[in-house]
């Protein structure tokens, strides 16, 4: 079981989690989101506009943070009632993962802390997302309703 509202206090840490992201994940996200910007799937064009290669959608990274919060809140995606981020750095996704492989691609690491206990079973949390040592989301804050 995850955390409960009565357990949570300002300063309570959310257990860190890491999520792997591969080229296949980005292609799936293009289709599911409707965001087919070429920098998320075409290495040649990504490099031609000065990027290190294909990069993840900012919204893909934000979605991973949403998943991180949902898991903490007992698996209810409806528990995340407010969620905002600033995209501070990109997530390059190298083309080195075979489909289905647990290695390769990029890894985004999430951690978080309860910033404030609010009423109505809600808490405000600060989320940190890192990839390759860089902070990829800053000012990532959410209001989550806990069981």
């Amino acid at each position: 079981m995850g955390v409960t509202y009565s357990d949570a206090e300002a300063g309570t840490a959310i257990p860190p989690k890491s999520y792997q992201v591969t080229r296949l994940d980005l292609v799936k996200y293009c289709g599911a989101s409707g965001d087919f910007n070429v920098i998320h799937w075409n290495e040649r064009i990504a490099r031609s506009v000065g990027l290190p290669g294909v990069i993840a959608h900012g919204m893909y990274t934000m979605a991973q943070g949403g998943k991180f919060l949902t898991a903490w809140a007992g698996g209810d995606p409806g528990a995340v009632v407010e969620y905002g981020v600033r995209f501070s750095s990109m997530v390059p996704v190298p083309d080195d993962a075979d489909p289905g492989s647990a290695t390769g691609g990029a890894t985004i690491e999430f951690s978080g802390t309860v910033a404030e206990k609010l009423g109505d079973n809600k808490v405000a949390v600060d989320v940190v997302a890192r990839c390759g040592g860089e902070k990829v989301l800053t000012r990532a804050r959410a209001v989550v309703r806990l069981p």
Partner: peptide, 23 residues
Amino acid sequence: AEFSDAIGEPSALCRDAEAAVKA
């Protein structure tokens, strides 16, 4: 369900109407 698969969100509440109603 497609969006949830794409981001790797495992929650049954995004796929199973019965589970969602129960919640």
